[in-house]
C-alpha cells in the first residue's frame, strides 16, 4: 500500500486501516499534526492550528 507523505518533512505517513476523513494523525518523523483531508484520493494536510478557545 503506498503511503502519503508528510507535507512538512516528506516522510512516509502510514495510514491506519480504520482511518476516517478529517481524522488527526501525527507524522512519525517530525511529529507534525496532520489531518486526513480525503481518503480517496489519499490526501494529508497540516491540521489546523490550535486556537485560544479550543479545548473541552
Amino acid at each position: 500500500m503506498t503511503h502519503p507523505t508528510c507535507p512538512a518533512c516528506e516522510a512516509d505517513v502510514p495510514i491506519p486501516d480504520d482511518a476516517m476523513e478529517n481524522e488527526l494523525l501525527a507524522c512519525p518523523d517530525c511529529g507534525g499534526e496532520l489531518e486526513i483531508i480525503s481518503l480517496n484520493p489519499l490526501e494529508l494536510d497540516f491540521a489546523p492550528e490550535v486556537e485560544e478557545d479550543w479545548g473541552e
Binding site: D18, M20, E21, N22, E23, L24, E35, A47
Partner: peptide, 13 residues
C-alpha cells in the same frame, strides 16, 4: 458536529 476526528469521535462513531 465536529472540528476534526480524534480518538473520542472515532469511538463515538
Amino acid at each position: 458536529l465536529i472540528t476534526h476526528i480524534r480518538a473520542e469521535e472515532k469511538r463515538l462513531i
